[in-house]
Amino acid sequence: MSDEAKGQTLPLVEVTVDGETVRAPEGATLLDACRAKGADTPTLCYLETLTPVNACRVCVVELEGSRTLVPSCSRAAHPGAVVHTDTPRVRHSRKLVLELLASSVDLSLANGDMKRWMDYYEVDAEKFGPSSASTAAGDRDGRRPGHHHAPDGKTAETVAQPVKIHDEMYIRDYSKCILCYKCVEACGEDAQNTFAIAVAGRGFDARISTEFDRRLDDSACVYCGNCIGVCPTGALMFKSEYDRRETGEWNELQQRVTRTVCPYCGVGCNLDLHVQDNEIVKVMSPIDHSVTHGHLCIKGRFGWQFVQNREET
């Protein structure tokens, strides 16, 4: 916060959430108000550090005077707004959004919040039928907008596809992608301004892609890992984590997380070192830290190996 802004308090707006009056600073969203009131409002595509895309629609609430439900993450809290977060309509939409995702995407590595919400809304991932088989590599990347082959109704279509592994830094497992746009935003204007990835294709065939589905090392990617930092489902993962998971050596219970400062330049990015068996296995950065809000560059994200290679030299 700048010194000028310090001490200034924004005017408050009063809104009603589930019958309780909540005061939120001007410019706050309905989500802010809901959370201030303590309503456990699920979000998937929302992140404090990114521009809301309001694409997942799991944070919807009932706003009196609005014909449809509204996404709380991006709707400004206007004075006098009356919001309901736990009506049958709201519960139905949240449940269905989660079910639609669970029936089409592999959520096995989704973060803890998501698992909690799935339980709360009693998500039945199977209700639309058995999942379709995985598509072949490149199949989804080659899909054109427009006509598709009619389904037979026997299975529920999924985004299952082989994992993309092209280098020693990242893996991209788009079977786990819920298309929350966070990685695109972090790669683009909200953090890195590299624009190596974007959403391509349309409808259910929409996917995160480089130009012409080129390998990341052929793209504009600068391997900052900020896309991985914001991915909520494990679709984007460090190769170091992926490899350990594949061999069964990934053990979060045994990991210790230590916060320190990046050894490279003078920006002062905070690093959260995930250490397992005296080895760094993953580097993240706290999103609530004012220096870079969770974002790093390639050196901070991957430049740590030198501390571990020393006995050989």
Partner: peptide
């Protein structure tokens, strides 16, 4: 390694003093 194997502080470009912490045993 000062940033991962020892305790202390560093000061960044913006004169921000921050703590570094020991996450690993040195080799």
């Amino acid at each position: 390694a000062g940033w991962a194997e020892a305790e202390g502080t560093v000061t960044s470009s913006e004169r921000r003093v921050q703590r570094v912490r020991k996450a690993l045993d040195p080799p």
